[in-house]
Nucleic acid binder design. Structure first.
Length: 806
DNA sequence: AGCACGCCGACT
DNA sequence: GTCGGCGTGCTC
């Protein structure tokens, strides 16, 4: 038999299946979707079996070396999906496969050197003995680093045959093992021997007694025994040595959510909720694929609909995938699912360690759970009988992966929904224009949830004109209204949430004398000040340096921080409202594991009066005593060079507004803006999605943007600006030739950040409605410049449906 | 990616 | 006449 294998080399020339024979002994293990190790030229590589056939057109095929997986890691469905992803996003098939698996399964390769001919080695290469003392293997890589001067000599030894080198394939996964002990004797024997333990060995007696007290003689974790009997590790070791206990290792899962969640029961649905869920349940019963766009305002009970739909899926013996944006994968959210479905739930998000993610993935793979709640990549959960896929906060741009494979989770979800004949629910209070337009056209089914479950009206929103404040002589970052409201909450013992979508202390540092802005020497972007270590940092390449005392341009000492980040707001708060207890949440303060959760819990317990934060506090939070939400700079992102910036602003303001007054107490929202008349502000304040949709659609239509046109973006980068723009120019011309006259081809233009890591960038954008030749043309372009990639460091990236234009 | 093959300049 | 530079092409 012959296996077709996609090898682990992300390259143009290897982006196709290679044929290998299957040795008799491996016959039963080699299955489609399993990973294998295959010889490839002089080395060994990991590969995925994509097909098995009886013969091959080639005359020389080499045999598969070994099989990694007992059970295939990719189902037939996922293999198909990988192929589709490669075609749609213009990535290599191997990249698509790897994107579907936890990072812990990514293989690494290293070359190791060991003694081949001991006699020859001792005779002729005694000088190398210190390196190869006791038949050790040495990694080539570390050798290069630590003993560079010996490389030449080692090469001689290799040539002479005294040393040999070979490839080591490291599949890199880390199964966590735990030491467990169990009695080596039967209950009665144990009881008897306990009586022979006389005199001093009290601790050992304690341990044996502990085992006697157990209901069944199962293995117990060493740590557990130590804790329960209050003995030291030495005691257990002695008992093992004496033969009373047997020590073994047991595979364990790392449990990121220790303990169980409080069980919750299904709530009675309102009429509106009934109307929204009913067609979904129908789809489930009829095994029909449809996409439901659940447009539910904050507090309308979307999650309960998800939960009850999943309930039905589980009753039917099927599985459910729930996607949640990374940022709102808060413990609060996870608890709701674990509370309803308990141990049936696996969780996948970036807060987990590599190993933890791998363990959660294995639970899914082994069929030990039937619900997965996770961020973008959880859409690839290796379930075999998917009953529903839910994407919460459907409009979030984090569902689009910004590196290869540049896929959108929504598209993958729909692919899988079609495959499994199951419904897909897209839920949002502020659907993306793309999705809402599709619902309007009847491609998706619209399920509106426009009432809040608790009948509470939306909180009143006021927009403050910050230009007005300035004119009135208020130069602080708080308007008079906001400041007054904050004071009032403090007095009443209620809580406030302040929202700012910038991190760090200030956005940039400017010289007041000459206007010089500190910028990164490698990227065309200003440096961001971080107070913690008094340094400025580039967010694109990581460049870092001490803040200069003098302006590097004119030598003036009047160097100042501009813009206001969360740190600066925090400082202002402590000066203006010294009695207020403030919790600041941004990327910097929540970097440590569990910090996010800790802050929110503390705020929930009322340990602070004001929660100040960035993006991450915009959604999902639900605190009883929050009655004021303030947005400090609502137009901060309105003017970003991105056609979605208006939409994003509207979504954010709506989202943030939903945080106030969700319970007994009435809430209020204050938005500070320099462009208060902008419709993203006024319509968000009126909670008027419909109107915003119409207005924004007009603007998109005028400018030929999605959802009226599809978009593709090509970014060329090179050390030399001329080369980058030259290639972009060539590409533009070629596209104009190949595509229909309907396509709008823009560029080449320099993107907002024209240089990153010392490489100049140039872009070309294509707007189109129907271009059957587009993907093929783009692929041809990639192939054409293939040679130039490695040779002269040219790089071309293609993004179908980009969400990040920078 | 690695590695071999292969074709032109500076050396014993 | 040979050693070695790295351009080109292949790996089932």
């Amino acid at each position: 038999m012959i296996a077709e294998v996609i090898v682990d080399l992300a390259l143009n020339q290897t982006d196709k299946p290679f044929d290998y024979s299957i040795p008799e002994s491996l016959q039963p293990l080699v299955e489609r979707g399993a990973r294998v190790i295959v010889p490839f030229g002089p080395r060994k590589l990991v590969g995925f079996v994509v097909a098995i056939k009886s013969d091959t057109a080639l005359e020389k095929v080499r045999p598969i070396h070994s099989v990694i997986d007992q059970t295939p890691v990719l189902t037939d469905e996922l293999l198909q999906l990988g192929k589709w992803l490669a075609k749609e996003t213009l990535c290599y098939e191997i990249s698509a496969f790897l994107a579907m698996l936890p990072a812990a399964m990514k293989a690494s390769y290293k070359k190791v050197i060991s003694v081949a001919d001991a006699g020859l080695f001792e005779n002729e290469f005694m000088d190398l003995l210190f390196l190869f003392k006791n038949g050790e293997q040495i990694e080539w890589e570390s050798l290069q680093k630590t003993h560079g001067s010996w490389l030449k000599r080692i090469k001689e030894a290799l040539q002479a045959g005294a040393l040999k080198e070979h490839q080591q394939v490291n599949q890199g996964q880390a199964v966590k093992k735990m030491k467990v002990v169990q009695p080596a004797l039967t209950y009665d024997e144990l009881k008897q021997s306990l009586e022979t333990f006389k005199g001093r060995a009290k601790k050992q007696r304690d341990v044996l007694t502990f085992f006697l007290e157990q209901e069944s003689p199962t293995a117990i974790a060493v740590n557990e025994v130590i804790r329960a009997t209050n003995v030291s590790r030495a005691t257990i070791k002695t008992l093992v040595q004496k033969g009373f206990l047997i020590e073994t290792e047991k595979e364990v899962y790392r449990d990121p959510f220790q303990g169980s969640a409080k069980p919750t029961i299904p709530l009675e649905l309102t009429d509106e909720q009934q109307a929204a869920i009913h067609p979904v349940l129908e789809d489930l019963d009829e095994r029909r694929h449809r996409v439901h766009l659940c447009h539910g305002v904050t507090g309308s009970g979307k999650t309960e609909i998800y939960l009850q739909a999943i309930q039905r899926v589980l009753e039917k013996g099927q599985e459910a995938i729930v996607l949640v944006p990374e940022i709102s994968l808060t413990p609060q959210m996870v608890e709701r699912f674990r509370g309803r479905f308990g141990d049936e739930v696996a969780v996948l998000h970036s807060g987990l360690s590599r190993g933890e993610k791998y363990d959660e993935w294995r639970k899914i793979h082994r069929g030990e759970v039937r619900v997965v709640v996770g961020a973008r990549s959880a859409v690839f959960a290796p379930f075999t009988n998917v009953g529903i896929i839910i994407i919460d906060e459907e409009h979030e741009t984090s569902y689009k992966q910004e590196e290869s494979p540049r896929y959108h989770a929504r598209d993958v979800a729909i692919f899988r929904g079609e495959f499994h004949h199951c419904p897909v629910i897209l839920g949002s209070a502020t659907p993306s224009l793309e999705s809402y337009a599709r619902a309007q056209k009847g491609v998706y089914r619209l399920a509106p949830l426009l009432k809040r479950v608790n009948q509470k009206p939306m909180p009143p929103v006021s927009i403050i004109d910050m230009r007005e404040e300035l004119r009135a002589g208020n130069r602080s970052m708080f308007s008079r209204d906001l400041f007054q409201s904050l004071q009032e909450r403090l007095r009443k013992g209620e809580q406030s949430v302040l929202f700012l979508n910038r991190r760090g202390y200030s956005t940039f540092i400017m010289c007041r004398d000459c206007g010089h802005v500190l910028s990164c020497p490698h990227c065309d972007i200003s440096l961001t000040f971080h107070r913690k270590n008094n340094k400025v940092k580039c967010h694109y390449c990581g460049f870092e340096e001490q803040v200069p005392h003098q302006c590097p341009s004119c030598g003036s000492e009047h160097i100042r921080f501009f813009g206001s980040g969360t740190q600066k707001v925090e400082e202002a708060l402590t000066t203006l409202l010294p009695e207020a207890r403030v919790i600041r949440m941004d990327v910097d303060t929540t970097r440590k594991k569990g910090a996010h959760e800790r802050f929110l819990k503390a705020f929930g317990r009322g340990e602070a009066d004001i929660l100040l934060g960035t993006q991450m506090i915009a959604k999902g939070l639900d605190f009883e005593k929050v009655t004021l939400v303030g947005v400090l700079a609502a137009d901060a992102m309105l003017h970003l060079p991105d056609f979605r910036s208006t939409e994003k602003t509207f979504q954010l303001l709506t989202q943030v507004g939903g945080r106030a007054g969700r319970h007994q107490l009435d809430g209020e929202v204050i938005i500070q803006s320099y462009t208060p008349e902008h419709y993203a502000m006024t319509l968000a304040a009126e909670h008027d999605y419909q109107h915003f949709y119409l207005k924004e659609m007009q603007s998109r239509k005028r400018h030929d943007y999605p959802p009226f046109y599809y978009l593709s973006l090509i970014t060329v980068s090179h050390e030399s600006f001329a080369r980058a723009s030259g290639v972009a120019e060539q590409i533009t011309r070629l596209l104009a030739q190949e595509l229909t006259s309907q396509a709008i081809i823009l560029g080449p233009v320099a993107p907002p950040i024209a240089r990153i890591k010392d490489r100049y960038r140039c872009q070309c954008m294509i707007k189109y409605k129907n271009e059957p030749k587009l993907k093929q043309t783009l692929k041809n372009i990639l192939d054409h410049y293939q040679g130039a990639f490695s040779k002269e460091g040219l790089s071309i990236s293609m993004d179908i449906d980009p969400y990040l234009m920078m």
